[in-house]
Amino acid sequence: MLKVPLTSEEYLSTCGKNKFSVFDIERDMFMIYVEEFKQLYRDVGLEVEFGAKCYRLDTPNEHVLLEDLRPRGFQSVIRKAGIDEEHTISVLTKLAQWHAASAVRVDRKGAYPSHISDGMFNDDGKQLISKLTDNMVPYILDTLTTIEGHEAYYEDIKGLAGHITDKILQVGVIDPEEFNVLNHSDCWLSNIMFRYDRESGKLLDSYLVDYQICKYGSVAIDLISFLLSSTKLEIKVNKFDYFIKQYYDQLIKHLKLLSYNKKLPSLIDIHKSLLKNGIWGYMAVCDVMAASLLEETESASFDNLFSDSPEADAFRTLLYNGKTYKEHLRIVLPWLHNRGALQNETI
Protein backbone atom coordinates (compact mmCIF):
# COMPACT_ATOMS: atom_id res chain seq x y z
CA MET A 1 0.00 0.00 0.00
CA LEU A 2 1.45 3.34 -1.06
CA LYS A 3 0.43 6.46 0.86
CA VAL A 4 1.01 9.84 -0.79
CA PRO A 5 -0.21 13.31 0.24
CA LEU A 6 -3.31 15.01 -1.03
CA THR A 7 -2.69 17.84 -3.46
CA SER A 8 -5.64 20.11 -2.73
CA GLU A 9 -5.05 23.69 -1.66
CA GLU A 10 -7.00 23.10 1.57
CA TYR A 11 -4.79 20.15 2.54
CA LEU A 12 -1.58 21.99 1.72
CA SER A 13 -2.60 25.01 3.79
CA THR A 14 -3.68 22.90 6.77
CA CYS A 15 -1.42 19.84 6.82
CA GLY A 16 1.08 20.44 4.05
CA LYS A 17 4.81 20.16 4.46
CA ASN A 18 6.08 22.77 6.89
CA LYS A 19 9.21 22.16 8.94
CA PHE A 20 8.72 18.40 8.76
CA SER A 21 6.63 16.22 6.46
CA VAL A 22 4.11 13.96 8.19
CA PHE A 23 5.14 11.30 5.68
CA ASP A 24 8.77 11.58 6.73
CA ILE A 25 7.64 11.40 10.36
CA GLU A 26 5.58 8.27 9.76
CA ARG A 27 8.37 6.54 7.85
CA ASP A 28 10.81 7.34 10.67
CA MET A 29 8.33 5.94 13.17
CA PHE A 30 8.02 2.68 11.24
CA MET A 31 11.68 2.25 10.37
CA ILE A 32 13.42 3.63 13.47
CA TYR A 33 11.33 3.92 16.62
CA VAL A 34 8.90 1.03 16.20
CA GLU A 35 11.92 -1.16 15.43
CA GLU A 36 13.50 0.05 18.67
CA PHE A 37 10.33 -0.86 20.58
CA LYS A 38 10.31 -4.33 19.06
CA GLN A 39 13.98 -4.85 19.90
CA LEU A 40 13.35 -3.99 23.55
CA TYR A 41 10.90 -6.89 23.69
CA ARG A 42 13.15 -9.24 21.75
CA ASP A 43 15.90 -8.58 24.30
CA VAL A 44 13.67 -10.05 27.01
CA GLY A 45 12.45 -12.95 24.88
CA LEU A 46 9.09 -11.62 23.66
CA GLU A 47 8.10 -11.04 20.04
CA VAL A 48 5.72 -8.09 19.77
CA GLU A 49 4.56 -6.63 16.47
CA PHE A 50 2.86 -3.26 16.20
CA GLY A 51 2.10 -2.81 12.52
CA ALA A 52 2.93 -3.51 8.90
CA LYS A 53 6.42 -3.63 7.44
CA CYS A 54 7.55 -0.34 5.91
CA TYR A 55 9.75 0.16 2.86
CA ARG A 56 11.64 3.14 1.51
CA LEU A 57 11.50 4.17 -2.15
CA ASP A 58 14.40 6.02 -3.76
CA THR A 59 12.38 9.13 -4.56
CA PRO A 60 12.25 12.72 -3.27
CA ASN A 61 8.45 12.60 -3.31
CA GLU A 62 6.61 12.28 0.01
CA HIS A 63 5.46 8.71 0.55
CA VAL A 64 5.01 5.80 2.91
CA LEU A 65 5.10 2.32 1.36
CA LEU A 66 3.58 -0.38 3.58
CA GLU A 67 3.02 -4.13 3.49
CA ASP A 68 -0.51 -5.23 2.63
CA LEU A 69 -1.68 -6.97 5.80
CA ARG A 70 -4.74 -8.66 4.31
CA PRO A 71 -2.94 -11.83 3.07
CA ARG A 72 -1.88 -12.42 6.68
CA GLY A 73 -5.47 -12.55 7.91
CA PHE A 74 -5.82 -8.92 8.96
CA GLN A 75 -8.94 -6.92 8.30
CA SER A 76 -10.61 -3.77 9.50
CA VAL A 77 -13.99 -3.74 11.20
CA ILE A 78 -17.11 -1.72 10.49
CA ARG A 79 -16.25 1.54 12.22
CA LYS A 80 -19.85 2.67 12.70
CA ALA A 81 -20.75 -0.46 14.69
CA GLY A 82 -17.93 -0.04 17.19
CA ILE A 83 -16.01 -2.90 18.77
CA ASP A 84 -16.93 -5.24 21.61
CA GLU A 85 -15.09 -5.92 24.86
CA GLU A 86 -12.78 -8.58 23.39
CA HIS A 87 -11.55 -6.32 20.59
CA THR A 88 -11.26 -3.36 22.96
CA ILE A 89 -9.02 -5.25 25.37
CA SER A 90 -6.89 -6.46 22.45
CA VAL A 91 -6.24 -2.87 21.37
CA LEU A 92 -5.64 -1.70 24.95
CA THR A 93 -3.08 -4.48 25.37
CA LYS A 94 -1.29 -3.32 22.22
CA LEU A 95 -1.37 0.30 23.43
CA ALA A 96 0.03 -0.79 26.80
CA GLN A 97 2.88 -2.64 25.06
CA TRP A 98 3.54 0.40 22.86
CA HIS A 99 3.40 2.86 25.77
CA ALA A 100 5.64 0.73 27.97
CA ALA A 101 8.30 0.35 25.27
CA SER A 102 8.14 4.06 24.40
CA ALA A 103 8.72 5.03 28.04
CA VAL A 104 11.59 2.57 28.50
CA ARG A 105 13.17 3.82 25.27
CA VAL A 106 13.29 7.39 26.70
CA ASP A 107 14.76 6.02 29.94
CA ARG A 108 17.60 4.39 28.02
CA LYS A 109 18.19 6.63 24.99
CA GLY A 110 16.84 10.03 25.96
CA ALA A 111 14.11 12.22 24.53
CA TYR A 112 12.59 11.77 21.09
CA PRO A 113 13.42 14.47 18.51
CA SER A 114 10.82 17.23 18.49
CA HIS A 115 9.37 16.36 15.09
CA ILE A 116 8.51 12.91 16.49
CA SER A 117 7.34 13.96 19.95
CA ASP A 118 5.33 17.12 19.19
CA GLY A 119 2.62 15.73 16.93
CA MET A 120 0.11 18.48 16.19
CA PHE A 121 1.00 20.35 19.39
CA ASN A 122 3.02 23.11 17.74
CA ASP A 123 2.48 26.28 15.69
CA ASP A 124 1.87 24.24 12.54
CA GLY A 125 -0.79 22.14 14.23
CA LYS A 126 -2.62 24.96 16.00
CA GLN A 127 -4.58 25.84 12.88
CA LEU A 128 -5.68 22.23 12.42
CA ILE A 129 -6.80 21.91 16.06
CA SER A 130 -8.75 25.15 15.82
CA LYS A 131 -10.57 23.99 12.70
CA LEU A 132 -11.45 20.68 14.35
CA THR A 133 -12.70 22.20 17.62
CA ASP A 134 -13.50 25.90 17.97
CA ASN A 135 -14.71 26.18 14.38
CA MET A 136 -17.07 23.24 14.83
CA VAL A 137 -18.86 24.54 17.94
CA PRO A 138 -21.79 26.08 15.99
CA TYR A 139 -22.50 22.73 14.35
CA ILE A 140 -22.32 20.92 17.70
CA LEU A 141 -24.65 23.44 19.34
CA ASP A 142 -27.20 23.12 16.53
CA THR A 143 -27.16 19.36 16.96
CA LEU A 144 -27.51 19.54 20.74
CA THR A 145 -30.82 21.37 20.50
CA THR A 146 -32.30 18.17 19.05
CA ILE A 147 -31.07 15.95 21.91
CA GLU A 148 -33.14 15.41 25.02
CA GLY A 149 -31.43 16.69 28.19
CA HIS A 150 -28.94 18.94 26.38
CA GLU A 151 -29.82 21.86 28.66
CA ALA A 152 -27.55 20.44 31.38
CA TYR A 153 -24.36 20.99 29.39
CA TYR A 154 -25.32 23.27 26.47
CA GLU A 155 -24.12 26.48 28.14
CA ASP A 156 -20.81 24.91 29.14
CA ILE A 157 -20.05 23.94 25.53
CA LYS A 158 -21.19 27.35 24.32
CA GLY A 159 -18.80 28.92 26.85
CA LEU A 160 -15.91 26.80 25.56
CA ALA A 161 -16.10 28.39 22.10
CA GLY A 162 -12.93 30.32 21.38
CA HIS A 163 -11.01 28.63 24.19
CA ILE A 164 -10.89 24.98 23.14
CA THR A 165 -7.72 25.22 21.05
CA ASP A 166 -5.74 26.73 23.92
CA LYS A 167 -7.07 24.10 26.31
CA ILE A 168 -6.14 21.32 23.88
CA LEU A 169 -2.64 22.74 23.49
CA GLN A 170 -2.36 22.73 27.28
CA VAL A 171 -2.85 18.95 27.16
CA GLY A 172 0.33 18.79 25.11
CA VAL A 173 2.46 20.53 27.75
CA ILE A 174 4.71 17.89 29.30
CA ASP A 175 4.48 17.45 33.06
CA PRO A 176 7.80 15.83 34.04
CA GLU A 177 6.23 14.62 37.29
CA GLU A 178 3.72 12.48 35.40
CA PHE A 179 4.22 9.17 33.63
CA ASN A 180 4.71 10.06 29.96
CA VAL A 181 4.76 7.95 26.81
CA LEU A 182 4.87 8.39 23.05
CA ASN A 183 1.17 8.30 22.19
CA HIS A 184 -0.01 7.01 18.84
CA SER A 185 -2.39 10.04 18.99
CA ASP A 186 -4.71 8.86 16.21
CA CYS A 187 -5.93 5.59 17.67
CA TRP A 188 -9.41 4.87 16.31
CA LEU A 189 -10.95 2.16 14.18
CA SER A 190 -9.80 3.52 10.82
CA ASN A 191 -6.22 3.16 12.09
CA ILE A 192 -6.54 -0.31 13.61
CA MET A 193 -6.50 -3.73 11.92
CA PHE A 194 -7.35 -7.06 13.53
CA ARG A 195 -5.95 -10.49 12.70
CA TYR A 196 -8.24 -13.52 12.85
CA ASP A 197 -7.71 -17.25 12.56
CA ARG A 198 -8.86 -18.20 9.06
CA GLU A 199 -10.66 -21.35 10.19
CA SER A 200 -12.15 -20.50 13.57
CA GLY A 201 -12.46 -16.73 13.14
CA LYS A 202 -10.85 -16.25 16.57
CA LEU A 203 -9.30 -12.84 17.22
CA LEU A 204 -5.51 -13.25 17.37
CA ASP A 205 -3.96 -9.78 17.39
CA SER A 206 -4.41 -6.10 16.63
CA TYR A 207 -2.07 -3.73 14.79
CA LEU A 208 -1.86 0.05 14.76
CA VAL A 209 -1.47 1.96 11.50
CA ASP A 210 -0.87 5.61 10.60
CA TYR A 211 1.96 7.00 12.75
CA GLN A 212 1.90 10.58 11.42
CA ILE A 213 1.01 12.55 14.55
CA CYS A 214 2.56 10.73 17.51
CA LYS A 215 2.80 12.83 20.67
CA TYR A 216 4.95 12.40 23.77
CA GLY A 217 2.93 13.07 26.90
CA SER A 218 0.07 11.75 29.00
CA VAL A 219 -1.45 8.36 28.22
CA ALA A 220 -4.82 10.16 28.40
CA ILE A 221 -4.41 11.20 24.76
CA ASP A 222 -4.59 7.64 23.43
CA LEU A 223 -6.94 6.20 26.03
CA ILE A 224 -9.62 8.88 25.70
CA SER A 225 -9.45 9.01 21.89
CA PHE A 226 -9.70 5.26 21.46
CA LEU A 227 -12.32 4.44 24.08
CA LEU A 228 -14.68 7.29 23.18
CA SER A 229 -14.39 6.89 19.41
CA SER A 230 -14.25 3.18 18.76
CA THR A 231 -16.19 1.12 21.32
CA LYS A 232 -19.82 0.05 21.16
CA LEU A 233 -22.25 2.48 22.75
CA GLU A 234 -23.33 0.08 25.49
CA ILE A 235 -19.76 -0.24 26.85
CA LYS A 236 -18.32 3.17 25.94
CA VAL A 237 -19.12 4.84 29.25
CA ASN A 238 -20.38 1.94 31.38
CA LYS A 239 -17.08 0.06 31.14
CA PHE A 240 -14.68 2.99 30.79
CA ASP A 241 -13.08 2.56 34.23
CA TYR A 242 -12.97 -1.22 33.78
CA PHE A 243 -11.10 -0.78 30.49
CA ILE A 244 -8.65 1.62 32.13
CA LYS A 245 -7.89 -1.07 34.73
CA GLN A 246 -7.34 -3.68 31.99
CA TYR A 247 -4.95 -1.29 30.23
CA TYR A 248 -3.18 -0.45 33.47
CA ASP A 249 -2.55 -4.09 34.37
CA GLN A 250 -0.96 -4.69 30.95
CA LEU A 251 1.06 -1.47 31.19
CA ILE A 252 2.60 -2.41 34.54
CA LYS A 253 3.22 -5.97 33.36
CA HIS A 254 5.22 -4.79 30.36
CA LEU A 255 7.03 -1.98 32.18
CA LYS A 256 8.28 -4.57 34.67
CA LEU A 257 9.16 -6.99 31.86
CA LEU A 258 11.29 -4.30 30.22
CA SER A 259 12.89 -3.33 33.57
CA TYR A 260 11.63 0.25 33.62
CA ASN A 261 13.93 2.11 36.04
CA LYS A 262 11.67 4.96 37.09
CA LYS A 263 8.73 4.98 39.49
CA LEU A 264 5.81 2.95 38.20
CA PRO A 265 2.58 4.91 37.83
CA SER A 266 -0.32 3.98 40.07
CA LEU A 267 -3.83 3.37 38.80
CA ILE A 268 -4.84 6.57 40.60
CA ASP A 269 -2.11 8.43 38.67
CA ILE A 270 -3.66 7.28 35.40
CA HIS A 271 -7.15 8.35 36.48
CA LYS A 272 -5.85 11.74 37.65
CA SER A 273 -4.35 12.33 34.22
CA LEU A 274 -7.58 11.29 32.52
CA LEU A 275 -9.52 13.83 34.60
CA LYS A 276 -6.91 16.56 34.25
CA ASN A 277 -6.87 16.20 30.47
CA GLY A 278 -10.60 15.70 30.10
CA ILE A 279 -10.89 18.36 27.38
CA TRP A 280 -9.33 15.75 25.09
CA GLY A 281 -12.65 13.96 25.42
CA TYR A 282 -14.36 16.88 23.74
CA MET A 283 -11.70 16.76 21.01
CA ALA A 284 -12.51 13.08 20.53
CA VAL A 285 -16.25 13.76 20.39
CA CYS A 286 -16.08 16.41 17.66
CA ASP A 287 -13.24 14.76 15.72
CA VAL A 288 -12.66 11.00 15.68
CA MET A 289 -16.02 9.97 17.18
CA ALA A 290 -17.88 12.03 14.59
CA ALA A 291 -15.81 10.52 11.79
CA SER A 292 -16.19 7.00 13.15
CA LEU A 293 -19.99 7.24 13.30
CA LEU A 294 -20.49 9.09 10.02
CA GLU A 295 -23.10 7.68 7.68
CA GLU A 296 -21.83 6.59 4.26
CA THR A 297 -21.65 9.65 2.00
CA GLU A 298 -19.80 10.64 -1.15
CA SER A 299 -19.32 14.15 0.23
CA ALA A 300 -16.80 13.02 2.85
CA SER A 301 -13.44 14.59 2.03
CA PHE A 302 -10.63 16.54 3.64
CA ASP A 303 -11.61 19.68 1.75
CA ASN A 304 -15.24 19.49 2.85
CA LEU A 305 -14.15 19.14 6.46
CA PHE A 306 -12.23 22.41 6.46
CA SER A 307 -13.09 24.67 3.52
CA ASP A 308 -15.65 27.51 3.45
CA SER A 309 -17.72 26.35 0.47
CA PRO A 310 -21.48 25.65 0.63
CA GLU A 311 -20.71 21.98 -0.06
CA ALA A 312 -18.36 21.91 2.94
CA ASP A 313 -20.97 23.51 5.17
CA ALA A 314 -23.51 20.90 4.08
CA PHE A 315 -21.04 18.10 4.82
CA ARG A 316 -20.22 19.41 8.32
CA THR A 317 -23.93 19.70 9.06
CA LEU A 318 -24.33 16.07 7.99
CA LEU A 319 -21.27 15.01 10.01
CA TYR A 320 -22.74 16.23 13.29
CA ASN A 321 -26.38 15.29 12.68
CA GLY A 322 -26.27 11.57 12.06
CA LYS A 323 -28.73 9.45 14.05
CA THR A 324 -26.00 7.17 15.47
CA TYR A 325 -23.75 10.11 16.34
CA LYS A 326 -26.56 11.75 18.29
CA GLU A 327 -27.18 8.54 20.21
CA HIS A 328 -23.54 8.57 21.33
CA LEU A 329 -23.58 12.29 22.11
CA ARG A 330 -26.58 11.77 24.39
CA ILE A 331 -24.48 9.39 26.51
CA VAL A 332 -20.95 10.77 26.20
CA LEU A 333 -21.50 14.52 26.70
CA PRO A 334 -23.27 14.20 30.08
CA TRP A 335 -20.50 11.82 31.16
CA LEU A 336 -17.82 14.36 30.18
CA HIS A 337 -19.84 17.12 31.83
CA ASN A 338 -20.05 15.21 35.11
CA ARG A 339 -16.27 14.68 35.04
CA GLY A 340 -15.63 18.43 34.70
CA ALA A 341 -14.22 18.08 31.17
CA LEU A 342 -16.45 20.81 29.73
CA GLN A 343 -15.66 23.52 32.29
CA ASN A 344 -13.91 26.60 30.95
CA GLU A 345 -11.80 27.18 34.03
CA THR A 346 -8.88 29.58 33.94
CA ILE A 347 -5.63 27.70 33.26
Results as ranks from 00 to 15, higher is better:
Phe50His: 00
Asp142Ser: 11
Thr88Asn: 07
Ile147Gln: 02
Ile83Trp: 10
Leu92Val: 04
Leu65Gly: 06
Asp134Phe: 09
Glu67Tyr: 01
Leu128Met: 10
Leu132Ile: 04
Lys94Pro: 15
His150Cys: 12
Glu47Ser: 07
Val106Thr: 12
Ile78Thr: 04
Ile89Glu: 04
Leu132Met: 11
His150Asn: 13
Ile140Trp: 05
Met120Tyr: 14
Tyr112Phe: 15
Pro113Glu: 01
Ile78Gln: 10
Leu141Pro: 00
Ser130Asp: 11
Ser76Glu: 10
Gln97Ile: 09
Ile129Gln: 11
Leu69Lys: 03
Thr93Cys: 03
Leu128Ile: 09
Pro71Ser: 03
Gly125Ile: 02
His99Trp: 00
Asp107Ile: 09
Thr59Trp: 01
Thr145Trp: 10
Gln97Tyr: 09
His63Ser: 09
Asp84Ile: 00
Leu92Tyr: 01
Cys54Glu: 07
Arg79Ser: 15
Met120Leu: 14
Asp123Tyr: 02
Arg108Trp: 15
Asn135Gln: 08
Ala101Val: 02
Phe50Pro: 06
Arg56Thr: 15
Val104Asn: 00
Ile83Gln: 06
Glu62Trp: 02
Val77Phe: 11
Ala81Glu: 14
Ile147Cys: 13
Ala100Asn: 03
His150Leu: 07
Leu141Ile: 04
Val91Trp: 01
Glu148Asp: 14
His63Lys: 06
Glu85Gln: 10
Thr93Ser: 10
Leu141Met: 09
Thr143Tyr: 14
Asp124Cys: 13
Lys80Val: 05
Asp142Gln: 07
Gly149Tyr: 06
Trp98Asn: 02
Arg56Glu: 15
Leu95Ile: 13
Ala101Gly: 03
Pro113Leu: 04
Arg108His: 10
Glu86Pro: 04
Ser76Val: 08
Met136Pro: 03
Asp142Asn: 12
Gln127His: 12
Gly119Gln: 03
Lys80Cys: 08
Gly73Thr: 08
Lys126Trp: 06
Arg72Gln: 15
Leu95Lys: 00
Glu85Met: 07
Asp142Arg: 13
Leu92Arg: 00
Val106Ser: 02
Ala103Asp: 05
Leu66Asn: 04
Ala103Met: 04
Val104Gln: 06
Ala96Met: 01
His150Glu: 12
Val77Glu: 08
Thr145Asp: 04
Pro113Cys: 06
Arg56Ala: 14
Tyr112Gln: 05
Leu92Pro: 11
Lys94Arg: 12
Pro113Ser: 01
His87Gly: 08
Ser130Val: 02
Gly125Cys: 02
Val104Thr: 05
Lys94Val: 12
Ala96Cys: 05
Thr145Gln: 11
Asn135His: 05
Glu62Gln: 11
Gly51Glu: 02
Gly110Asp: 05
Val64Gln: 06
Gln127Met: 10
Asp124Glu: 15
Phe74Asn: 06
Leu66Trp: 00
Ile129Trp: 15
Asp118Val: 07
Glu151Gln: 14
Leu57Glu: 06
Ala111Pro: 03
Glu151Cys: 12
Phe121Glu: 01
Asp58Tyr: 08
Lys80Pro: 05
Met136Ser: 13
Ala101Ser: 13
Leu95Val: 13
Gly82Thr: 03
His63Gln: 11
